[in-house]
Amino acid sequence: MGFLNNVFNTIKGYGNEANDAFVDTQGIRIMEQEIREAEAHQRKANESLTDVMAEQKGIARKVNDLKASVQEYAEAIGKLLDAGNETLAMETAEKLAELETNLDSNQAILDSYNEQVKELKAIIKDSAKQMAALRREVSIIKSTEAAQQASAATAAQFSGSNSSLRSASASMARIKAKQQKRKDKMKSARELAKEATGGDLNDKLAAAGVIGNQSSASSILDRYKKTN
């Protein structure tokens, strides 16, 4: 089952039943059990891996020894034949046949150990991934649960035992009025400050054309034009 599917099934609260637990605690217990199982699985795989790798090393050594002997006997046969010693060459060939059979069977064991090591490593990697995913799921569910509990606590705080919140549109209207009042207050404060510094009167005189606006390049130029 996918991650969100699990979360959906574990988190209640979609039903709006006041007495329902917010989160299906059984669901979390199951997931925590799955984490423990995955951990046990991984531990077992780790132990097996250690054993198999020890065996693998022993067999690999044996295979290498056998390969060296096979090489050695094969070279000896060549030399004996060159020297015309066919009887000893035959005897050596019999020994070589025995060694080759032995090498083949040990090589087969080594191949199977190599395969097992690969499989065990894959199992360990998969369990680690599975554990990380489950842990993430439990953590998300728990944080969602905390958020649900927090909302419920506040809802109760606002309206007693009734879980419904106060009217949103009424609250919004009140807040807007309050924010507007605050803005107006700030505007008045700014205007008062301007009056105190005489800025307001200057603005009015400038608007009436009694005093000039602030100096600008064109007003300076105009002044010069008038005097010349």
Binding site: S139, S143, A146, A147
Partner: peptide, 10 residues
């Protein structure tokens, strides 16, 4: 409302 788990703040 702020709540926290091991990995995230909500």
């Amino acid at each position: 409302l702020a709540t926290a788990s091991d990995s995230q703040l909500l």
